[in-house]
Write a protein that binds this DNA or RNA. Structure first.
Length: 638
DNA sequence: TGGGTAGTTGGCCTA
DNA sequence: TTAGGCCAACTACCC
């Protein structure tokens, strides 16, 4: 009797490509009789990951392009999108399709590991062999951790040393030139419906999510979902995804040999009208582009260019090394990596708007997406920051570009992150990370949390006295303020002398530009002749924050210290200790001396146009008056 | 043990 | 116009 030929389910996840896929190669090496390329439309993502329509559009682009590419290789195949949670789907699918193997690329984040364990256990039970490979980063993140002595890679030199111990980055695997037929796809089982309660994307939808109406889509053809089905309005980003476009963009970047070979990230402009960097990050995130292909193409160009080429960490390959560093740090630290609480590597700073956590009794202590409003003033600053109406034009331009395009330059991210945390608002970096998670089309959990820790000087970086100025930093790149004129049209005609600091403009200059400086911007009705008053005096805030950071560093608590975990560092005596470094005039959060005073939770109500969420502030100015706490902090500094 | 130095990407002043 | 030095001083790593 002839042996049964393998019947393979290939599960695409964060590897939406055909080129350089070690897992796909492993699947094809089985010489299967049939191979089903599938994607599970997981309700965990659809309801539990908050993302703008732009990011949803991007993942749909990637899926559609992959499906088209599969079909080009074999007209009897495509990407079969199945609309159900993988945990409940696979046990049914294994038997309905008589599969012998399940193959997928390993993933490192906490949810993925948990999900894959459930699926792998179900496969074992069904007698299905599971094969996995890893190709998301240059080196296997778990292997990097081992070579780094079991510790997270907290610097680029550690990552490089660990990588060197493993050896050369694997060379990319060419895309297959053929694919087996997909087998029959009977659905002789019921679809398990996910609960739609707690849909984090509800505020974005103009209609209900319909993607789960049928397991195989509205035409029962396993088609890729559409934004329409998701109930989302059209995406605002001009950036589109997918392997085909990613490879074209990679070719374009590498064709400019001088640009690619001498690329120095710190010398690229955050205020450029056209992106000064490669814009390949969202395709790396969704797996439409292999980092190893990117790496070796960059190495080729560097070799061709010869003397004068840039080197890590500033070069193109350096950027990929940083990505590996964050992935390996996450792999070592596990689920606390994306938060402060219970994370031994992240410094505790008593920022405003700290996260609420899931029940500490169950031991999870995970951030819940909600936060304590310990200071109404800081909360307002945060909302103005998110909406791009801080009254600091360079900050607002960047935040508006982020909201519309889902992408801003890396140094622009530095600027707004420093401003929100240690260099202005003294708001918790987890609030900023939430906003980036929602709005960035290239949001990568490992890089996002890592970079927020970096910029807030709580991990990876600690030189908190290096502070970005919302005026000087932008001006260095764009003297005339063209970038501001594009994104903050209210100031389009303002004299370049005042464009970064309109509060200094004379009335005549404002009249000439046809703009008035007024209000807090949260409740305006989209008028282009009003720009908000700056929310505070930056120099004053900077020195308050700096003094507060200095004190917090000297106390030196970290996320896993008992006093942080049980909250005692903010209670009673502990609170006294922190009281003088809360970074605002602390009167508004200090009424009862208890934990997280003024706690009201918070529901997001504001977008760029304010959505009629409140009446225009009666006060002409929202400049903060100095409070007793501020004087106290200044005394500390003196 | 402890002093020296390196660390992707600051601001500001001066020559 | 731009390059260099100082500011005030962090952690991690090395010898």
């Amino acid at each position: 009797m002839a042996a049964i030929k393998p019947r393979v389910i290939y599960w695409f996840r964060t590897d939406l490509r055909l080129h350089d896929s070690p897992a796909l190669k492993a699947a094809l090496d089985l010489e299967p009789e049939v191979l089903w390329p599938i994607f599970t439309w997981d309700p965990h993502y659809v309801y539990q990951v908050k993302a703008s329509p732009s990011r949803w559009q991007y993942i749909l682009d990637c899926q559609q392009d992959l499906s088209d590419s599969i079909r080009k290789l074999n007209s009897k195949s495509k990407l079969f999108v199945i609309r159900e949670a993988p945990q409940t789907l696979f046990p049914k699918l294994f038997s309905a399709w008589k599969a012998t193997h399940l193959v997928f690329e390993r993933d490192t984040d906490a949810y993925a590991r948990e999900r894959d364990k459930v699926v792998t256990d179900a496969a074992k039970k069904a007698g299905v062999e599971v094969i996995t490979r890893y190709g998301r980063t240059l080196w296997d993140s778990d292997e990097i951790v081992v070579k780094n002595g079991g510790k997270p890679t907290m610097s680029i030199t550690q990552l490089q040393a660990a990588g060197q111990k493993i050896g050369e980055v694997p060379k990319p695997i060419p895309a297959p030139d053929h694919l087996p037929d997909a087998g029959e796809v009977p659905i002789n089982f019921d679809q398990d419906q996910a609960s739609k309660t707690d849909d984090l994307n509800a505020s974005y939808r103009s209609k209900a999510d319909n993607t789960y109406r049928s397991i195989a889509g509205p035409k029962d053809d396993f088609a890729v979902e559409t934004l329409e089905e998701l109930g989302f309005p059209a995406a605002t980003t001009p950036h589109r995804g997918g392997e085909t476009l990613a490879l074209q963009q990679l070719d374009k970047v590498m064709a400019d040999v001088k640009y690619a070979a001498t690329f120095r990230k710190p010398e690229t402009s955050p205020a450029s009208m056209e992106p000064a960097t490669t814009l390949l990050s969202p395709n790396l995130h969704f797996g439409a582009l292999s980092p190893r292909l990117f790496y070796w193409r960059a190495m080729q160009v560097v070799e061709k260019y010869g003397k004068g080429a840039s080197v890590p960490p500033e070069s193109l390959t350096g950027q990929l090394l940083f990505r590996d560093m964050y992935f390996a740090a996450q792999a070592a630290i596990g689920s606390p990596y994306i938060q402060t609480l219970n994370n031994p590597y992240v410094r505790f700073i008593p920022w405003h708007l700290p996260s609420k956590h899931d029940d500490a009794d169950t031991g999870t202590m995970a951030i819940s997406g909600k936060y304590h409003v310990d200071s109404p003033q800081a909360d307002k600053w945060f909302r103005r920051w998110k909406a791009g109406v801080t009254g600091f034009p360079f900050v607002d331009a960047l935040m508006r570009q982020l909201r519309i395009e889902g992408w801003i330059h890396h140094l622009g991210r530095h600027m707004v992150a420093c401003f929100l945390t240690r260099g202005g608002c003294y708001v918790h970096w987890e609030r900023g990370a939430d906003v980036f998670e929602e709005l960035l089309i290239d949001h990568e959990p490992a890089s996002n949390a890592g970079n927020w820790q970096w910029l807030s000087c709580t991990a990876f970086f600690s030189q908190y006295y290096r502070c970005y100025s919302p005026v000087a930093f932008g001006r260095k790149w764009d003297k005339n303020g063209d970038f501001i004129r594009k994104w903050v049209p209210e100031l389009k005609h303002l004299d370049a002398k005042y464009i970064y600091e309109p509060w200094k403009a004379t009335q005549a200059a404002l009249d000439d530009a046809g703009v008035q400086i007024e209000g807090d911007g949260l409740s305006d009705d989209g008028r282009d002749d009003i720009y908000p008053v700056a929310m505070f005096d930056f120099q004053e805030r900077k020195s308050i924050c700096l003094a507060a950071m200095k004190r917090a560093f000297s106390i030196g608590l970290h996320g896993n210290d008992e006093a942080v975990k049980n909250g005692s560092c903010l209670r009673k005596q502990g609170r006294q200790r922190w009281k003088d470094l809360m970074g605002t005039n602390g009167s508004d959060g200090d009424k009862d001396g208890g934990e997280h005073a003024g706690d009201a939770g918070h529901e997001e109500k504001h977008n760029l146009k304010g959505r009629n969420s409140g009446k225009r502030s009666r006060s002409k100015s929202s400049t903060v008056k100095e409070g007793p706490m501020d004087r106290h902090v200044r005394k500390l500094k003196a």
